[in-house]
Design a protein around this nucleic acid. Structure first.
Lengths: 204, 204
DNA sequence: AAACATTGATACCGATCGGTAACATGCCTC
DNA sequence: GAGGCATGTTACCGATCGGTATCAATGTTT
């Protein structure tokens, strides 16, 4: 048990597969662990271990754990907007279809994967210190989400488009939170229909 | 700095004010700290200190920190149902008014106090281990909340009363989560109107 | 081959984590 | 006044926390 410690390439057809940079492996491992187990529940040591790296490599690539958390959330935000564009893109001239596509995709993700809700929303719960570098990311993300929803609801010609946008945002956030305890068979099961009903109430 | 360690009665008119049992002080301090700073962020030592007690007294009254957390959440649940009864009670024969009263009270609490959302909802985020004794409390609470909302929506004569109940529960949970990052001026500002619109969409 | 940057390995730091043992002090009741 | 009970005090446990220093082993580039 003294030898053969590192270099677990696991599978990969050829053993000469180029090893990804330590920073990237650590980054990915951190995102995965933070999401699945929670930010405060995961120590830097276990991140390095999961990445097949060492704690030193982590601290060579990131200033601190807090900074690493902030970076992870920034990446979550980037991916969220990519998902947003990909989902609403096909309905450029149909705001109603764009909104419904969002809730459809959301309901689908609840059923298949992502049982741990929203990484950024979870961070809002876990990180109670306003000085934490990740809090700014959380706030910025939710502000931008609100802005985008408002734009869609305005384009929709909704009577009270600001109220509708807020209502839809509350439904989204509620879906994330509710999923953590009651899963996809809980209130999430009605997510899309509720969103549709709310939209219709302000348009039809 | 060696003397005068304990016995901080703070104020209280008479100094002969009977000291509350250590268990109660610890319990209250734990609830307050868990809510304000998060469960994992608070150590047993700081709980005892905040309660003017010692760690030993904590472990004489509670099996473990996990068990203390579960007890705290059970108390949060009890208080939640008391609030529920007090809020809906005056509208025993008017389900619509009962529902709106809930959202009115919720919006009011968002504006005045409770900027840290819902203690039970937060616990759902923080406690990722299914074996944690508090998880059962979280799940039971959300199930019961769903049951009560369904009963109200059924009494309301809503067309799709299960969808309406789920939608309202998502709005509630979303309000808690959203409040953590954007406060009462965020989507929470539209909480009551969104709930009303959703209710009306299934009744009128 | 020399110089370089990246990484791993290991040991360490002080602090805090959840949890326990042993003893002392007070208070209320009999 | 003698028990018993609740509590405080202090010291301790092994483990882990976030973070750092030092050195060896890589490969890559020129």
């Amino acid at each position: 048990m003294t030898t053969a410690t590192t270099r677990q390439q696991t599978d990969s057809s050829a053993e000469d597969a180029p090893r990804r940079p330590a920073r990237d492996r650590i980054f990915d491992a951190a995102r995965e662990l933070f999401y699945r187990q929670g930010i405060r529940a995961v120590g830097v040591e276990s991140i390095a271990q999961e990445a097949g790296a060492t704690k030193m490599s982590l601290y060579r690539a990131f200033e601190s754990k807090d900074e690493l958390v902030a970076e992870c959330l920034k990446q979550s935000e980037r991916e969220a907007w990519l998902w947003w564009e990909a989902t609403t893109g096909p309905h450029k001239h149909d705001p109603r279809a764009a909104l419904l596509a969002i809730f459809d995709s959301l309901a689908l993700k609840a059923k298949t994967c992502e049982k741990r809700g929203c990484a950024i929303g979870n961070a809002a719960v876990e990180l109670t210190d306003d000085a934490h570098p990740a809090r700014a990311v959380v706030v910025a993300y939710n502000r931008e989400k609100r802005r985008r929803l408002r734009a869609l609801c305005k384009a929709l010609g909704a009577r009270d488009h600001e109220m509708l946008a807020d209502g839809l945002q509350l439904l989204m956030d509620g879906a994330y939170l509710s999923r953590l305890s009651l899963g996809a068979a809980g209130p999430n099961a009605s997510l899309r229909r509720a969103a549709e009903a709310l939209i219709d109430s302000q348009t039809i």
